[in-house]
Design a protein around this nucleic acid. Structure first.
Lengths: 122, 122
DNA sequence: GCTTTATATGAGCATATAGTTATACATGGT
DNA sequence: ACCATGTATAACTATATGCTCATATAAAGC
């Protein structure tokens, strides 16, 4: 069943290292956290500095409950830090790689969308 | 209802630009495509160069049907290119930003996991 | 044209997760 | 102690998506 495959270009070097299931799950989980518009909206709002839950709810137009949930998701993924001050809880971006991640994705998206542009212009 | 909020640190500069719903949906979608272990496994296998569907199925241990589906998802997101040659279809990484994305995520993950390490060691 | 091989796709099931509403918890003021 | 405010959580519904099995499509050889 080992069908002799033509190798058109690259000489078929084996994949570097197999990558454990656990590692893949962790990476996938990290991407999944970033795969929700509301969470991206929250991150975007936090680019300017830390904010309270209610502030974020107002800025993003989400309900308090939903925003709180998403903030927790982001915090559990160590992307946000949490600071309690009196009645309020302030969240802030804790993982600086978030900025680069978003830059990368936005950049490659702008490329593949340069035709139907306008979406990012604003 | 505009509760006067104490601004502990940063002087509350407004978020740069509101970011349209469409843009956010596109970015979220892109992250979602990367948020599945099997797709990450496929991308990882393709780091070494283009491969056919069956090759990838064998390498990843997935069924032909499932691998084909995931490859399509990746291709529709413009992350993979597709080349047909005879009976076989070869997929290859088309978006170089993928490499940097994975590097970034792996890097920040290794940091936050340096304690329980070993997952990435292999 | 028929068969074989490689890939794609349709249908169905199972699971995960986003959103809502209502309520609980916590803190500060009176 | 009580009440007001800010945040978290529980229960539920709706939707999306991954996986499997079976089948369809497409190309190559006979």
């Amino acid at each position: 069943m080992v069908h002799a495959v033509k190798m058109p270009f690259k000489p078929a070097m084996k994949a570097p290292r197999p990558m454990s299931d656990e590692a893949l799950a962790l990476i996938a989980r990290r991407f999944a956290v970033l795969a929700e518009p509301m969470r991206l909206r929250l991150l975007h709002a936090l680019f300017a500095g830390e904010k309270s839950v209610n502030e974020l709810a107002e800025l993003t137009g989400g309900t308090q409950a939903n925003v709180s949930r998403h903030l927790q998701t982001l915090a559990h993924a160590h992307m946000l830090g949490r600071r309690k001050e009196g009645l309020q809880v302030f969240y802030a971006i804790a993982d600086p790689s978030i900025f680069k991640l978003c830059e990368l994705v936005c950049g490659s998206l702008e490329k593949s969308l340069s035709k139907q542009a306008g979406v990012f212009a604003q």
